[in-house]
Write a protein that binds this DNA or RNA. Sequence first.
DNA 1: ATGAAGGGTGCACACGTGTGCGAAAATTTG
DNA 2: CAAATTTTCGCACACGTGTGCACCCTTCAT
Lengths: 333, 333
Amino acid sequence: MRVTIKDIARAAGVSHTTVSRALRDSEEIRPETRARIRAIAEALGYRPNPVARALQGRRTQTLGVVVTRLSDPFHTEVVQGIEMVAQARGYGILLSLSHEDPEKERAIVELLAAKQVDGIIVAASRLGSRYLPMLEALQIPIVLINSHQTGPYVYSVATDNVHGGYLATRYLIGLGHRAIAYIGSRRGGRSNQDRYRGYRQALREAGLPLRPEWVVKGDGRVEGGEAAMRRLLEADPRPTAVFCYNDLTAIGALKAALRAGLRVPLDLSIIGFDGLEEGTYVTPMLTTVAQPRRQLGRLAAEMLLEILEGRPSPKHILLQGTLIERESCGPPG
Amino acid sequence: MRVTIKDIARAAGVSHTTVSRALRDSEEIRPETRARIRAIAEALGYRPNPVARALQGRRTQTLGVVVTRLSDPFHTEVVQGIEMVAQARGYGILLSLSHEDPEKERAIVELLAAKQVDGIIVAASRLGSRYLPMLEALQIPIVLINSHQTGPYVYSVATDNVHGGYLATRYLIGLGHRAIAYIGSRRGGRSNQDRYRGYRQALREAGLPLRPEWVVKGDGRVEGGEAAMRRLLEADPRPTAVFCYNDLTAIGALKAALRAGLRVPLDLSIIGFDGLEEGTYVTPMLTTVAQPRRQLGRLAAEMLLEILEGRPSPKHILLQGTLIERESCGPPG
DNA sequence: ATGAAGGGTGCACACGTGTGCGAAAATTTG
DNA sequence: CAAATTTTCGCACACGTGTGCACCCTTCAT
């Protein structure tokens, strides 16, 4: 059987109350008694029962984490960042996948609330404003990663997509490109719009035209990027550089370009977004605007823990991406 | 406040005992009473408190999952498989990362046990035989993925690495290669040994020599594969084909080969192991022996649930990998 | 020596759910 | 219609930990 404070109480000849206090209160109990009880607890190999503590104290020391899919390497790093912070602070991670299904996401959040998690982190929510009433009812703080809502229990950490899109496009312009395409994402939602906005802003500033035939959409994955690039290669005139919604899209674009016999970056420059490890797997290695993914997770977790422990915390944090120059971009040939 | 069975009891004018039974026992309560109580519970929006249930019934409906790193795409799919099964059956997933640190792994497993998870799944354990005494003490069933131990509480699901290594090498031989190298992994442990064994077996059967200078080691990641391939390129005579411990290693090997100006598969054939999505990102796409990763996770979870629900279950399952022909292998030029 | 003050400890209850057993109510049996 | 039987329900306790309040035992001041 498992050792409980009652067992310790019996062994020490005191009440379980005294044991409970000796192991935590520290002040109300005579030092000798406390030391004796602690020694016995140690000797018996006592481990407090988190379930009982949760029932009594309303704290489970567990965070709920909701992600769309783990097969997306972006989320993977985020989760890893969350986990590291949580583990260091003694919290557990209850992980659920929503598979981009808003209804499922909703059900998961309610399930997590029922399981009494202390707080919830949602990466790439598909639920939007429908959250707010639910969260008010749940009374559990939520940190959203890369999506934005406002409300009493809602916090967020996000990267500045407009800035990132601007940064990527400016970089291409700086290399001398004047014919720059954008491959977006059907599923990107707000983040796609924002990156696109940054792209347009950079073009406008440089006095470059925004050509509709140079703006196509993928699906945020490799296949979509490939298909989009094939369409783009038929454009006349053909762009000399492409900014892609994310790295997976860019990898697809690169595949299609190589297959069409183009030399990258000589005939075509390609820049991605995210800063995935996967971008270094391909030849040439992918130049990209990196999101601080692990830090997104870290910050989200730290934010949540601050809130839970009653410390002051900002409600919304916006991070800037950084350019990583690798090999897929160069001056127009 | 949250609705409890006491609230329902008050509203229905019965004791909380009756409510408890009406919501589960079903038999001992008069049908009309039961229906009335259920209606009230529904109306009040009652949700049972899993924490209280866990304390009372010793079941948390939660599985612990331990993985080394999520940045390894192999584990990602496994976790996803586990999560799908768990979610469908109403179980939660408590995820922890061990970062390949045996001591941390041990601490995590004990923490999970303290948190009262019903069962534990460990992917790629680094703990080996040190598990057994601990598990006996914990009395919690564990399913190991791709590692093998035996004991009263230990179950396992694994892929047949010897067979996989044999399959890969046989394939290369079948294409006409006679100079076949192996890039292993320093960190691969038993699985590396087994794949190597399959490699040697295939060579032996075909009457091909095992040359020590054609056997080098990476680290199971891209960088290690790259470095290993650079060493291999200096061998004389140079191999015409390489079997790599896993896909990441193979991707590294491919990078190094392309950089050295080799044409793949014309000058060099490369085959990997795992069947990662990432293998399709590179050009040429990677031929590989695929592990049924998601199924590994699924089976592990299903196995664990069978055990928990007292149904009969095999103790050890061994799955076979399958060859996926893509573009990185061809006859020797 | 007596009373007040104060620190140390235990009783009883709380958290929300589940269950053995006995009591009350309803039903069947003689 | 009374007795035996069955059904239906509630009391009390359990799970392991935490806490308000009262009590007891020192210790100190008068």
